[in-house]
């Protein structure tokens, strides 16, 4: 859904053709979100059908016409209204790890604990990579979008931190559950 608004937002600055659009998108958020040309052109077609952007074809010598897109006034209103609305649906809990845990549940706890530990190290590595990026960013000259990039990195950091904390919590619960299973009699006394 927000590919649509990201493209609208970039086009609201000035008109662009598809290649320029992708370059602008990659420069702003490419680190977190990759789009291919197919997605860009499909989305542009839809925006055009909805009357949110309009296209003009610029002839080029010995090459197909260049398609240049600009936002319509309807498109601007739509973008403004979207920018002002909070995001209704929080991040989906659809991690591959949950599926792995699901099929491991009930069996021997040790391989699960190993997996949880390995996964925690992966997230720590991710946190560290993001932090080094943040540290490098702070050394660059101040630009308008530096703060936004910094905040995007922060968001990724908070999410990864939540994952690390959840894994530590899961580890404790798994250990406790396996202790209970190993000593059912003591438990019932």
């Amino acid at each position: 859904m927000s590919v649509k608004y990201a493209l609208l937002g970039i086009l609201s600055e000035r008109e662009r053709h598809g290649y320029e659009l992708k370059a602008a998108f990659d420069e702003r958020v490419g680190e977190f979100w990759s789009l291919n040309y197919g997605q860009i052109y499909t989305t542009l077609d839809r925006l055009e059908r909805e009357g949110l952007v309009e296209r003009r074809d610029e002839p080029q010598a010995r090459r197909p016409d260049r398609k240049i897109y600009r936002v319509t006034s309807k498109g601007r209103r739509e973008l403004e209204s979207w920018l002002g609305r909070p995001v209704a649906r929080p991040r989906a809990l659809r991690d591959e790890l949950f599926i792995k845990l699901l099929f491991r549940a009930g069996g021997d706890v040790d391989p699960v604990l190993d997996l949880v530990h390995e996964q925690k190290e992966v997230y720590l590595g991710h946190l560290r990579r993001l932090t080094q990026r943040k540290f490098a960013l702070a050394k660059q000259p101040q630009r308008d979008d530096r703060l936004v990039t910094d905040l995007l990195i922060d968001a990724a950091l908070f999410h990864a931190e939540a994952d690390v904390r959840w894994l530590a919590h899961a580890e404790q619960k798994l250990r406790a559950a396996s202790r209970r299973r190993a000593r059912p009699r003591e438990e019932s006394r």
Binding site: E121, L127, R128, T131, F135, F158, E161, V164
Partner: peptide, 19 residues
């Protein structure tokens, strides 16, 4: 974890051992 990520190396201890 977020503070630890400032390190270029992250050592984890558990029950007095490096894990």
């Amino acid at each position: 974890a977020r503070a630890a990520a400032y390190g270029e190396r992250i050592v984890t201890l558990k029950d007095g051992r490096v894990v």
